[in-house]
Computed example of a mutant assay.
Amino acid sequence: MRNESFEFLSKLVAAPSPSGYEQPAQRVFRSYVEKSAIVTTDVMGNVYGMIEGTGKDRPRVMLVGHSDEIGLQIRYIDDNGFIYFGAIGGVDAHLTPGQRVIVHAGKGDVTGVIGRKPIHLMEPKDRDTVTKLDSQYIDIGAATRQEAEKLVRVGDPITFAAGIERLQGDRVTSRGFDDKAGSFVVAEVLRQVAAAKKKLSVDLYGVSSVQEEVGLRGGTTSSYTVNPDIGICVEVDFATDQPDVEKKHNGDVKIGKGPILPRGANINPVLFDLLASTAEEQKIPVQFTGIPRATGTDANVMQISRGGVATALVKIPLRYMHTPVEVLSLSDLDNAVKLIVAVLSKIKDKSLFIPR
């Protein structure tokens, strides 16, 4: 991965963006893609980068990755300045005690920790019990409610403090790869398409959507706005090359072995075949999974927007999803970009995606 692209990825995952509070990350996305595309933002906070193609009756192609991440939100501050919170998206209560967090308050970021009774003071039966999220609390060091309320207020979003770190090889860890990895790929595709000398035969819309983790909301509204003929959603998927994940349920998926191309009812068969054949032709490594149901991604709502959209998924293998230490391979991101750029050059006629 080129240095400038890694710097963009680092800034994107560092920017806080719990669902409903995505604009710090969206500002990073906008700043990066405005050099390559015509950029607009809607009332939901979805960001669109558009590159006009050439020719008559051009298909509209929409790429989408969601910028929002899981997080927390202040619900209550007690008399001693301890902060009680709720989950934004699917937060695992097993993992939160002992985490350092950042409250993104109006007056600036405030550091805190999610406290817990020391193990020495626990009854034996409580040591194996998961404390519910609504019983956990954040300590920002305030001694009273009044002191805490000078710094934060009810409704402020909270993220885990973890940032991007390099592991061995091209593997990296961070919070928020679900699904800023997707927004990253969308931005990189726009950059590469704009840099190419030959215009595409499609109008290309690259979207960084919002509020996916709380109901696919930005994907729903952005699909309606763009009204695409063809759509590719870029998401993350469960890697099964860690010791405690069952391959029989999720397929054989490894990080570093290429992006994933799912098949199933959510996926247009012609578009899937085009992605798979292009990967083979270009010698781009890919992996395959089956999803015999709605996918639970923006591809789901894109497919059934208006009169229907020829939809596919390109997914990035990810370990430890919805934790502060998600792990992926940079080569999988690069290969996802390479595959989508190659496929875009082959799309010329929207009628070809009608199953026969």
Rank of each mutant, 00 (worst) to 15 (best):
I316Q: 04
Q26M: 12
I119N: 09
G81R: 06
G81P: 03
K107M: 08
T221E: 11
L12A: 04
N46H: 10
A15L: 02
A196K: 09
V185M: 12
K132M: 07
F29N: 02
L274V: 02
D178L: 13
T96Q: 11
N3K: 12
F272H: 15
V245N: 05
Y21C: 06
R153V: 08
S351H: 13
V236S: 01
T96L: 15
F353I: 08
D42W: 09
A194S: 15
F8L: 11
F238P: 01
M62C: 02
D273S: 13
M50E: 09
E188I: 11
I291C: 04
K132W: 01
A187K: 05
E281K: 15
L271P: 05
L261H: 03
V110E: 06
K346E: 12
V186N: 08
Q242C: 05
S67M: 15
G155D: 08
L63Y: 09
E34Y: 00
F29D: 05
K283V: 13
V236G: 01
L330I: 15
P228D: 08
G49F: 00
K348L: 01
A93V: 07
D92E: 14
R127Y: 07
G290F: 04
G163C: 08
I230Y: 00
V207M: 06
L344I: 07
V327S: 04
N3L: 13
N300L: 06
L63I: 05
A142H: 07
D170V: 13
V309K: 04
G206C: 07
Q73C: 08
F353K: 06
T289Y: 00
G155L: 12
A142M: 06
Q146G: 15
R166F: 02
E34I: 01
T311N: 06
G296K: 07
T220H: 07
K257A: 14
L200V: 02
K199C: 00
D334H: 14
V189I: 14
T220A: 06
G89A: 09
T289L: 02
L261N: 01
H120V: 14
V33D: 03
A25Q: 05
D349R: 13
S331F: 12
V210E: 10
A265G: 05
F353Q: 08
E52W: 00
A196G: 11
V337A: 07
G308H: 05
L121A: 13
I51G: 03
D252L: 13
R60D: 00
V341M: 11
R27N: 13
L72S: 04
F238Y: 12
E147V: 08
P243N: 07
L95G: 12
T131P: 04
Y48G: 04
M321H: 09
R153Q: 14
V189H: 11
D203F: 00
V309L: 04
D349F: 09
L95K: 08
K350P: 01
N335H: 15
M44W: 14
R145F: 02
I83Y: 07
K350Q: 11
S345L: 01
I114P: 03
T323K: 05
I347P: 06
Q26I: 15
Y32H: 10
A14H: 06
P16A: 11
T225S: 14
K257L: 07
I232S: 05
I354Y: 04
G169N: 15
S174C: 10
K315S: 15
E147I: 01
F238L: 15
K346L: 09
V193H: 04
N46S: 13
D241T: 04
E212K: 04
S5N: 14
R306C: 07
E69Y: 08
G112Y: 12
M62G: 03
R319H: 09
I102K: 06
S329D: 13
